[in-house]
């Protein structure tokens, strides 16, 4: 199967997951960097039309300016993709005598990888200003920002946790950035992303410039500490409490990091993937329906 055909397959939302004849099935976990899979991951970005599809290492701004307005390079460099899971089989059938061939399917679940300049629209300007500010402060853009992802017309900055407060402060205060409205902290748990299991996701809006972006901090399960951004965005107070409550991410420096939705003495953090939904089987006219988290999952 050619790369192009595969691209079409995965690029449409309703695409059948993967062709069983795909070479990827033979090397599930290690095959991440192969060109075939990298293509699949890029093609899974429907919003990538306006942006270069290539996923190259973070270029410097000078190089980016040079490349500005150009089309996608013919042979872009490959970068590691964010593999969050590897999915086996289909239809939720496991361990049965599967004759359909779908049982042997192996699909890596990859999040959109880092983008290459130009990011398009005002994204370049924001990243340029941020680069300037972080380099001037001595932190260095490359140290603070792990990667820049443009996907579905949204800009995501992956921020190293020790610099998250500085990045937030720069985003809020610089007149050219002015993301003055902090709209809260969400969380996500990716148990298969070794060493980066817990993500805190911040969304900020610039009322002044009519822009919004997302910055994301990933920490490991063993050391789930992130500096609190309440000093920059006081409105993040309850949002960080909620993310602590549901994911167990500890926001250092928060004025009162207590549980907010669950009772104070609740054990565990319910939004983690390893936390069961609970629920009891429902019986109706003799038939029993299992709780939602124990039903067939259509992997």
């Amino acid at each position: 199967m050619s790369d192009d055909a595969k691209k079409d397959d995965v690029g449409t939302p309703h695409a059948p997951v993967e062709n069983p004849k795909d070479a990827t099935r033979d090397e599930p976990a290690t095959a991440v960097g192969t060109p075939v899979q990298a293509d699949a991951a890029q093609a899974a970005k429907p919003g990538a039309g306006a942006t270069p599809e290539a996923a190259a290492a973070q270029s410097t701004s000078a190089a980016a300016l040079e490349a500005g307005g150009q089309n996608v390079p013919a042979q872009p460099a490959r970068t590691p993709l964010e593999v969050v899971d590897v999915r086996h089989g289909m239809f939720g059938a496991h361990g049965s005598g599967d004759t359909s061939g779908y049982g042997g399917l192996v699909v890596p679940v990859v999040m959109p990888g880092p983008s290459e300049r130009p990011y398009g629209g005002w994204f370049d300007e924001v990243v340029d200003v941020l680069t300037e500010l972080l380099d001037a402060s001595g932190t260095g853009f490359a140290n603070a920002i792990e990667s820049v992802v443009v996907d579905r017309d949204e800009l995501t900055l992956h921020v190293a946790r020790e610099h998250v407060v500085e990045v937030a402060q720069a985003l809020r205060d610089d007149p050219d950035l002015r993301f003055e409205l902090g709209l809260g902290v969400s969380g996500a748990h990716y148990p298969h992303e070794q060493g980066r299991e817990l993500h805190a996701v911040y969304h900020v809006t610039s009322v002044t410039h009519g822009r919004r972006l997302r910055f994301e901090v990933a920490v490991s399960d063993d050391d789930p500490h992130i500096p609190s951004t309440t000093g920059v965005y006081p409105g993040h107070d309850w949002h960080e409490r909620e993310t602590f409550d549901f994911f167990g991410i500890v926001f250092d420096g928060h004025p009162g990091l207590a549980r907010i939705e669950m009772p104070d003495d609740w054990p565990g953090h319910p939004q983690r993937k390893d936390y069961p939904l609970g629920g009891i089987p429902v019986e109706y006219k003799g038939a029993t329906i299992p709780p939602a988290d124990q039903r067939r999952s259509y992997s």
Partner: peptide
């Protein structure tokens, strides 16, 4: 398709934001 989005609407009480993450499932 895998990825994440942020969508907001003007709710009667303010800005309602939805953060959705898909793993392709």
């Amino acid at each position: 398709p895998a990825g994440q989005v942020w969508q907001t609407v003007e709710h009667p009480r303010g800005e309602l934001g939805v953060h959705l993450v898909s793993d392709g499932g």
